[in-house]
Design a binder for these strands. Structure first.
Length: 477
RNA sequence: GCGCCCAUCGUCUAGCGGUCUAGGACGUCGCCCUUUCACGGCGAAAACAGGGGUUCGAUCCCCCUUGGGCGCGCCA
């Protein structure tokens, strides 16, 4: 048995892969990479009512998009139900667990009573020490039972957590966890422990909403005589208002972040810096992340999700991405972008060449792929161009420059940013018009907008024929 | 209600008893660059929640208060 690090990401497929889950996956992945170990994927689908195939697909798609590849085959927890039950029966036989015939109604009453007496709602252990005869009688009368863990009632349970520190829970506050439901299926609490053990998981990194569970699970480990894995409960991500991330904070699933035009590398970088740090360093390549990542640098306080910072970071990544690569990323993301189909339809090699040529000017002005697509719109828009109100105003003021420029452009031997710039500068010097007074009407005519990349780059990217035609469209009115 | 966790600029954070007139990043506000918008450069405002200890000395250690969060299912 080696000491190789084994982590796991264990989402329940009751919805998409949300941003907190993505970060948990990232941390597990980084930790495994850092120590040359493996990250396993386990789909916790023991809740048959709420688990869906669509959710499983969404989670896998999300991990895939984020570039977080797990090792080996994904384990579907439900398929291991027989093994879970086997372990429960082992505990039953060893006297570490017992059959409980309390009905739902009894449990409800217990909770009601506790609430009325301002005590913690807890199972009272009424079947914990019953005689064999009692139990046999109950079973014979056809009553359904669950299997409960006979948890220690005195003393305390310590979770030695790598993030939270040494956390102590009084055992009197932890009741006898249900291991097997009355239909014989395993509960999450049992399944997790059995699976983590069977999968040789060495490090459990998960949200700190599981911290109390860690204590209950410790009891199961102890009952089975199994070694407890290293625990690391990371703080949850909160919304901008400090409350738990939810629908009203906007985008949720990682697929939504893709549709918003974020690059996976940027999202990873943003996520790793939420609750984890390495000095003042903000930007990490994947390799740098792996090399620097470890549990002690994870903070204990919850972090708020800040779109502004994500956006800024994404802008950095876009600018740092080589043009061809960024074009490929845009193309791959088109199916998910609003209005992306419009470009997708026109994307032939000629259009790719135009986009590539304009990319340096485009990517500097875009913080997301959505903005990149929007900024590139003028390249594939059909003539006559629709005009923004501001562009229309500009044209109303400076249409005569378009007319005057036309013969000069026609006379150009070659059509480049440099040649068109020379022509425009010569014109502006000769007529005394400020460069801006000439450039803005040109921009309006060529792009339909008041803002765009540098106008001479636009001229070159559009090419002579398209440029002249667009100028003519606006010059004649 | 009970248990547990957390607490540095608006946000993410550095800090691990003296180096702190508390550093970086995002955001905000100025200025510069400039054909627009960006990018970039320069600069500014902006924080140790409060109260007690411990110590020669606390942002850093302890306690309390306050404020947040999480958990308390035959859900995961």
């Amino acid at each position: 048995m080696s000491d190789a690090v084994v982590t796991r990401f264990a989402p329940s497929p009751t919805g998409f892969l949300h941003i907190g889950g993505a970060r948990t996956a990232l941390f597990n992945w980084l930790y495994a990479k850092r120590f040359g170990g493996k990250m396993l994927l386990r789909i916790e689908d023991t809740d048959r009512e709420r688990s869906t195939e669509a959710a499983i697909a969404a989670i896998i798609d999300g991990l895939d998009w984020l570039g977080l590849k797990w090792d080996g085959e994904a384990i579907h927890q439900f398929s291991r139900a027989a093994r879970h039950a086997e372990v429960a029966h082992e505990m039953l036989a060893a006297g570490k667990a017992y059959k409980c015939f309390a009905t739902q109604q009894e449990l409800e009453e217990m909770r009601e009573k506790a609430r009325a007496e301002k005590r913690p709602p807890r199972y009272d252990g009424r079947w914990r020490e019953r005689s064999d005869a009692d139990i046999a009688a109950a079973e014979a009368s056809g009553l359904k039972y669950v299997v409960r863990l006979k948890a220690p009632q005195e003393g305390e349970t310590v979770v030695d957590d790598r993030v939270q520190g040494r956390v102590v829970f009084p055992n009197k506050d932890l009741d006898d966890t249900v291991l097997l439901r009355s239909d014989g299926t395993p509960t999450y609490m049992l399944a997790v422990v059995v699976d983590d053990h069977d999968m040789s998981v060495t490090h459990i990194v998960r949200g700190d909403d599981h911290l109390t569970n860690a204590a209950r699970q410790t009891h199961i480990y102890e009952a089975m005589g199994w070694r407890v894995p290293v625990m690391a409960h990371i703080p949850l991500i909160h919304g901008s208002d400090g409350a738990k991330l939810s629908k009203r904070h906007g985008a949720l699933g990682v697929d939504a972040y893709r549709a918003l035009g974020y690059l996976p590398a940027a999202l990873r970088n943003y996520l790793v810096r939420l609750g984890w740090s390495a000095g003042d360093k903000e930007f990490f390549t994947t390799q740098e992340m792996i090399d620097a990542f470890d549990l002690p640098q994870i903070g204990r306080s919850p972090a708020r999700f800040d779109f502004a910072k994500l956006e800024n970071m994404n802008g950095h990544y876009m600018r740092a991405t080589p043009d061809a690569e960024l074009l490929a990323a845009l193309e791959a993301t088109l199916p998910y972008l609003d209005g992306g189909d419009m470009l997708a339809r026109k994307l032939d090699d000629a259009m790719r060449a135009k986009l590539l040529g304009a990319m340096p000017g485009l990517k500097e002005r875009a913080k997301t792929l959505v903005e990149l697509l929007d900024g590139a719109r003028f390249l594939f828009a059909d003539r006559p161009l629709p005009l923004e109100p501001k562009a229309a105003d500009i044209l109303a003021q400076g249409r005569q420059h378009l007319v005057a420029l036309t013969p000069r452009f026609s006379a150009l031997a070659d059509w480049t940013a440099a040649s068109t710039e020379a022509a425009v500068r010569a014109y502006s010097e000769e007529t005394g018009a400020k460069l801006g007074q000439v450039a803005q009407p040109l921009r309006a005519a060529l792009t339909g907008r008041a803002t765009s990349p540098g106008i001479f780059d636009v001229l070159e990217a559009l090419g002579r024929d398209e440029s002249m035609a667009r100028i003519a469209d606006q010059a004649k009115v």
